[in-house]
Simulated scan of single mutants.
Amino acid sequence: MADAITRKTRLLSDSKTDDKKWIFSEYEEDNRIVTLSSIQFQISISGIHDKVEFEARE
């Protein structure tokens, strides 16, 4: 019988605001919407890893 694995989603983001100025953001909510303003795109954090299959660690 296999044990259920619980994974916590985490997204780290750096955004450039001006020359030599950056904002670091950390998100942990799966339903949080992240906006990529440079390409006018939005995606939920859970959508980023939707088709990714992680290997089980021993």
Results as ranks from 00 to 15, higher is better:
I5P: 03
W22M: 06
F41V: 04
A2W: 02
L11H: 00
D14W: 10
E28A: 07
D30A: 14
I33M: 07
L12G: 04
R10S: 11
D18M: 06
H49A: 12
D18N: 10
F41G: 01
F54T: 12
D14C: 08
S25L: 10
D30C: 04
D18I: 00
A4W: 02
D50S: 14
F24C: 06
I43E: 03
D50G: 01
S44M: 03
A2P: 15
M1T: 12
L36H: 09
S37N: 15
E29V: 04
S37L: 08
A2V: 13
K21D: 11
R57T: 10
W22C: 02
I43M: 14
D3S: 11
D14I: 09
I43W: 03
E29I: 04
A4D: 08
E29R: 06
K16M: 10
S25A: 12
T17N: 08
E28Y: 07
R10D: 04
Y27A: 01
E53G: 03
T35Q: 11
K8Q: 13
F54W: 10
L36R: 06
V34S: 01
T9V: 09
S38R: 08
R10Q: 12
E58V: 05
D14H: 05
K20H: 13
D19G: 07
L12K: 04
N31A: 07
Q40A: 13
A4S: 06
I43F: 15
K21S: 15
R7P: 00
M1S: 15
D50Y: 09
Y27W: 09
F41M: 11
F54V: 14
K20M: 13
I5T: 13
T6V: 08
D3H: 08
K20F: 12
D3W: 01
D18H: 10
D3M: 03
I33D: 08
L12C: 04
E58H: 08
A56Q: 11
S38K: 12
D14K: 08
Q40F: 09
E55K: 14
V34R: 01
E58A: 10
Y27S: 03
N31V: 03
I48L: 15
T35A: 10
T35W: 05
I23Q: 14
S37V: 09
R57G: 04
F54C: 09
K16Y: 03
D18S: 14
D14P: 00
I48N: 01
A4C: 04
S25D: 15
E29P: 00
L12D: 08
S46G: 00
S44P: 03
D3I: 04
E55G: 07
R10K: 13
K51M: 05
S13R: 15
A56F: 02
S46M: 11
D3G: 06
H49S: 14
A56T: 11
L11Q: 00
I23P: 01
K51L: 06
S25M: 09
T6C: 02
D30Q: 10
E58D: 13
